[in-house]
Amino acid sequence: MARTQLVFDARAPTLYLDIDGTLHAGSAVIDDTGVITLDSGRELFEFAPVLVELLAPHPSIQIVLTTSWVSHIGCAGVVSYLPDALRYRVVDDTTRVRSRMSEVRDGTDRVSKILRHVSSHGVLSWLVLDDRAWGVPIGYARHFVHLSPESGISSPDARSRIKSWLRECQAL
């Protein structure tokens, strides 16, 4: 059954989603012909079924992509790799949010872009899944699930944190 594409809604629970180290182990490498493989030798999107299963009972959860993949293959390109059950949830990405040079230098650019996206769009309920979310300011840690690049969202701790957030979303 085809689902209707979600449209960005600041009131809807929002999952800020990285790809590498989150939905699979390792980092993507794109060759000259456009073929994407992982430096880990593992399967692309091997942990995506975990996210599909976790989100299945929660059809209103929307996804904003935070992955650097978007700057290489575009949002539509990234979405084309996602399982059908996740594709319709993607409502935006953070590529239009500009990084400050100091943030790029100290490695906090991804976190800063996410926080600016949340603030500028007035997102009320949100969670970040990322293996390299560095420099999270005090008071925002509960919104970030720091993942191991080897296990991504497949680790028991990550799954538990996601489930906990989903329960909070249901209570709203």
Rank of each mutant, 00 (worst) to 15 (best):
T94Q: 10
S102T: 07
I30D: 04
V35C: 07
P83I: 06
Y140D: 02
L44S: 05
V50G: 14
L82P: 11
I30K: 13
V123L: 07
V111F: 09
G41I: 07
S68P: 04
I138V: 07
E43S: 03
P137N: 06
D31T: 15
S120K: 07
D131K: 01
E103W: 02
L54M: 11
L38S: 08
Q62D: 05
A133Y: 08
S40T: 06
L38W: 01
L129C: 06
V104K: 15
R100W: 00
T67L: 10
I73R: 08
D92S: 09
L55N: 00
E43C: 12
S112R: 15
G34F: 14
L86G: 06
L115A: 07
E46D: 14
V104P: 10
T108M: 05
H58F: 15
S60P: 04
H58T: 10
R105H: 11
V111C: 12
L65R: 00
P49C: 01
L129K: 02
Y88E: 08
W126Y: 14
S102A: 00
I114K: 02
R116E: 14
S112V: 10
L82R: 07
V35A: 12
V136M: 01
G77E: 05
F47M: 10
V111S: 08
C75R: 12
V79C: 09
A56Y: 10
D109N: 15
D39H: 12
H117S: 04
R100G: 00
T95F: 02
R116T: 06
T108I: 09
V64G: 07
L129G: 00
V90Y: 06
T94A: 09
G34D: 09
V90P: 11
P49E: 10
P49H: 12
A76G: 05
I63Y: 06
R89P: 08
T94V: 14
L51W: 03
V90S: 09
G34L: 13
H117D: 12
K113G: 01
G77R: 14
L127H: 08
I138H: 13
V123Q: 03
P57V: 13
L44D: 03
G74A: 08
V29Y: 07
L115Y: 01
D92W: 12
H117E: 04
L65W: 07
T67Y: 05
L55F: 08
L38G: 05
I73N: 02
R89S: 06
Y140L: 14
V50Q: 12
D31H: 15
L124C: 03
V50K: 05
D93E: 01
F47D: 11
S125M: 11
P49N: 12
C75Q: 13
G139F: 08
G139R: 10
E43G: 02
P83D: 09
I138A: 15
P59E: 07
Q62T: 03
R110M: 11
V136W: 00
W69H: 02
G77H: 11
H72M: 13
G41A: 14
T37E: 03
S102E: 13
L38E: 05
